[in-house]
């Protein structure tokens, strides 16, 4: 009789994080499952992860750079500016939509077996991260094409990738748990993602935002992430520091809030799903 487990209503789960650690193998297995079935029974397979961001980049470069004639940052080619913004944005939006559906599409698991529920939405992040890595290869080729040599700040990119992950996890967890309870969010998320593409500085530099609006604009956590990516890759303009700090603060707040909300609702998932 090694372990003793007491089940009570509203039990404050002291072993929450320990429990997650205990189930780390399930996290790996679920992530591996999502990765290995992602492009099954498709003709071009992984190429989808290359084609989608590439085509979007071309469209944005033409519309924002050529048609609207928005300024780039310094000497940087507009296509590079767009792609440096699209990398984190695609990560954020895919993470949000994949995670939010993850619990509902794994409903049979949730209602049949116990494990820390947080594993399901977070393991979808691995797939999204893989897509990110593939798109990153495009970036490297583009830099080669434009013969663009980034500065030393390029080495800080993993740090901003981490920020992108954190910025995605918070809202993703919150929306995931809401989606279990209120399926309205299934319709809201695609809208938010589409809307966010234009609200966030993906197709344009955030330098085009008037100075007195910039702090307010930075309330969007993705702004900080995108600015960080652009600084690493292009490095022509410095990061707007007060805005960046605000973005990080909002990110951390959402991370805390998302995890909290998720834990609060987690216990009733099986009854609601």
């Amino acid at each position: 009789m090694q372990e003793k487990l007491v089940l009570e209503p509203g039990r404050a789960n002291k072993n929450y994080w320990k429990d997650i650690w205990h189930y780390r193998e399930l996290f790996q297995v679920l992530a591996w499952r999502d990765v290995s079935v992602r492009y099954k029974q498709t003709v071009i397979g992984v190429a989808w992860a290359l084609i989608r961001p590439f085509l979007t980049m071309i469209v944005f470069t033409v519309i924002f750079g050529k048609v609207a004639k928005l300024p780039s940052e310094g000497e940087a080619p507009y296509a590079l500016l767009v792609f440096a913004g699209m990398l984190p944005w695609t990560f954020f939006s895919t993470a949000l939509s994949e995670a939010s559906n993850s619990l509902v599409s794994n409903a049979n698991l949730i209602s049949k077996v116990y494990f820390p529920r947080i594993i399901v939405p977070t393991s979808t992040m691995v797939v999204v991260l893989l897509d990110f890595v593939i798109s990153f290869i495009i970036l490297l080729f583009m830099m080669l094409w434009y013969q663009w040599v980034p500065g030393l700040q390029f080495l800080l990119l993993p740090l901003f990738l981490l920020l992108a992950v954190l910025a995605s996890i918070g809202p993703a967890l919150w929306i995931t748990s809401l989606n279990v309870k209120y399926r309205d969010f299934r319709y809201i998320i695609p809208f938010v993602v589409q809307f966010g593409l234009y609200v966030s500085p993906v197709g344009f530099s955030s330098n085009v935002i008037p100075d007195n609006w910039r702090l307010l604009y930075s309330l969007n956590p993705v702004v900080g992430v995108i600015d960080g990516f652009r600084w690493c890759i292009i490095g022509e303009s410095n990061i707007y520091i007060p805005g960046f700090i605000l973005s990080v603060v909002v990110t951390l707040f959402f991370l805390w809030f998302g995890i909290n909300q998720f834990r609060k609702m987690e216990k009733t998932f099986a009854d609601l799903i």
Partner: peptide, 22 residues
């Protein structure tokens, strides 16, 4: 479902002294 920790009880408690698989 309560024993396998899928759902929480509304009242009372359960003490399990061992690993449960369902």
């Amino acid at each position: 479902k309560i024993l396998s920790r899928i759902t929480e009880p509304s009242e009372g408690k359960v003490i399990l002294r061992g690993r449960v698989a369902s």
